[in-house]
Amino acid sequence: MLADASGEAEVLVEGDGAQALAWREWDAPDVDADPGAFERHGVHEMIDALRRPLVPLPGGGSMCIEPTRALVAVDVNTGGDTSPAAGLKANMAALRELPRQLRLRGLGGQVIVDPAPAPKKDRKQMEQVLRAALRQDEMETVLAGWTQLGLMELQRKRERVPLHEVLG
């Protein structure tokens, strides 16, 4: 082989293609392809939920995700909870759920989060929760920091067409 090292590299054995690898690696079906599977698993309801900007959060709060031409605006609300810790609870729930919602909706670019009212001393804790949630997400996201008005700024890689454009 060393004597034949000059020139173009030769293919000794043709490797398996993507389809052969998939058949070999996926031995058990992971997809329910039976008629009525979408209804049984509630897929249509999940897609409808992603069409709506309002995302209900545990504890009665909500998060509103609205893509615009320039950025993605996320507004966190406490709902009917009026306790002193309501803002922090709603923000924590929203920041845990935010990477998943952005991924499902196909949203990226500049993301501005308007958190529910919470003291400045809680910002560090909120950042830690968001960073932990971002570590579990595969999409490259940078937490840019806080603005002067108390908004959290993120920069997220755009990898696909947003869901609202696909669904129309």
Score class of each variant (00 low, 15 high):
71 L>H: 13
61 G>F: 14
52 R>K: 14
150 G>P: 03
136 Q>G: 12
79 G>S: 01
58 P>R: 15
76 V>A: 12
84 P>M: 03
65 I>W: 07
71 L>Y: 15
87 G>E: 11
164 H>Y: 09
128 Q>L: 15
123 R>H: 14
141 T>F: 03
99 P>R: 01
39 E>M: 01
30 D>F: 13
53 P>K: 07
96 R>C: 01
122 D>A: 14
105 R>V: 12
87 G>F: 10
72 V>R: 15
144 A>Y: 13
104 L>Y: 10
33 A>G: 03
33 A>I: 09
130 L>Q: 07
32 D>V: 13
149 L>H: 13
137 D>W: 08
40 R>F: 15
38 F>Q: 07
28 A>S: 09
29 P>H: 03
121 K>R: 04
85 A>P: 04
81 D>A: 08
28 A>D: 05
157 K>S: 06
62 S>A: 14
49 A>L: 00
166 V>F: 02
46 M>A: 11
140 E>C: 08
111 V>M: 04
43 V>Y: 13
158 R>Y: 05
164 H>E: 13
38 F>G: 01
131 R>L: 11
27 D>F: 02
111 V>R: 05
144 A>S: 10
84 P>D: 01
102 L>C: 00
32 D>H: 05
160 R>Q: 10
92 M>Y: 02
116 A>T: 07
55 V>Q: 14
139 M>S: 13
86 A>T: 11
156 R>T: 07
136 Q>T: 14
116 A>K: 11
99 P>V: 05
104 L>P: 14
158 R>Q: 07
31 V>A: 14
122 D>F: 12
111 V>W: 08
49 A>Y: 04
98 L>Q: 00
85 A>N: 10
156 R>E: 07
124 K>P: 07
81 D>H: 04
42 G>C: 07
151 L>V: 08
121 K>S: 06
163 L>S: 01
117 P>I: 09
42 G>Q: 05
62 S>H: 15
60 G>D: 08
27 D>W: 00
67 P>N: 09
42 G>T: 06
155 Q>R: 12
104 L>I: 14
141 T>Q: 02
109 G>D: 03
132 A>T: 05
45 E>P: 06
91 N>E: 01
67 P>F: 05
84 P>R: 02
161 V>I: 04
64 C>T: 13
156 R>D: 05
44 H>W: 07
101 Q>M: 01
56 P>H: 14
84 P>I: 03
53 P>W: 07
46 M>C: 10
103 R>Q: 09
99 P>F: 00
138 E>D: 11
79 G>Q: 00
27 D>Y: 00
48 D>W: 05
155 Q>K: 13
97 E>A: 11
44 H>A: 08
86 A>R: 15
121 K>E: 09
100 R>D: 03
85 A>S: 06
86 A>Y: 02
133 A>T: 15
105 R>K: 10
54 L>F: 12
86 A>E: 07
163 L>N: 07
95 L>G: 00
81 D>Q: 02
65 I>T: 12
161 V>D: 06
146 W>I: 01
83 S>P: 02
100 R>A: 01
125 Q>E: 11
99 P>T: 01
58 P>F: 12
36 G>D: 00
151 L>P: 04
94 A>E: 01
100 R>F: 00
106 G>E: 15
68 T>P: 14
